[in-house]
Design a protein around this nucleic acid. Sequence first.
DNA 1: CTATATCCGAGTATTTTGGTCGGATATTCA
DNA 2: TGAATATCCGACCAAAATACTCGGATATAG
Lengths: 142, 142
Amino acid sequence: MKLSKKGIYGLRAFVDLAVYSENEPVSLSSIASRQDISVNYLEQLIAKLKKADLVKSVRGVNGGYILAKPIEEISVGEILRALEGDLTPVDCPGIKSESQCESAKYCVSKTVWKKINDSINETVNQINFGELVKESKEMQKG
Amino acid sequence: MKLSKKGIYGLRAFVDLAVYSENEPVSLSSIASRQDISVNYLEQLIAKLKKADLVKSVRGVNGGYILAKPIEEISVGEILRALEGDLTPVDCPGIKSESQCESAKYCVSKTVWKKINDSINETVNQINFGELVKESKEMQKG
DNA sequence: CTATATCCGAGTATTTTGGTCGGATATTCA
DNA sequence: TGAATATCCGACCAAAATACTCGGATATAG
């Protein structure tokens, strides 16, 4: 039951990107050096963010990445889901449709798994990315 | 971010145990056949539950396992923690004490990790095991 | 004394994760 | 045009975690 480094490094990198990409694209190599993550590995993480339309890329010299939309419109849930896949600790077919899971009829744990899945998603969806970035900027000033 | 089969099978086995152990100890082999889990693997799971004082064992012929305390006094959180270790998706030293984590000063994600950890634990702690068993019994009747 | 249990540690196979590498493509700028 | 600096992409590899299996010891009822 751990969030993998994909999620942890990825969110860190995304905060970094948000902080430094206000005026121009930020290259992976600059994020990598600030955050101490290898460029090669970062590539994989950012690819997931791009696929989820959270960042846009600018190729070529002086290229890099920029945010695809205003930070206020992004939740931490979106970011983590892009990086980690869905944040449902338990894959239980019975949660979504009654009939798919053969043991669903007698599987009482279903309600437990649903509660767990819902709570984690609600939590991360409620965390606004803009707030996080704001907080981060203030930390770096002080 | 997945709950492992330890947790999933373990909780299922524990519900089974609770349902069938009202009058006499339930053997692992009977749980195993009902739940379609190998006896050998179940041994490992139940060992964790025993270590956490959630079940008691009775050795020898006609032996097996019984609950160590009334089901109403058990939360799903206790069970899952016994099986999985702590249910904190992110190990971040900065959550507990400010000084331990060298990057804590600028690590804004800390608040995110704490919210995630807290929400999952609150959720599972609030689910009463007695309710679950009751629900399960009613399902089996109908 | 035998059958049926729990107990326990070691070992192995599979899957997931974390990370590297090589090379293709795009773009700027001299 | 060509060199430098980027993203892009798929394959690959190593390490760690997970999901088991196995063999044998110990306990106890009948």
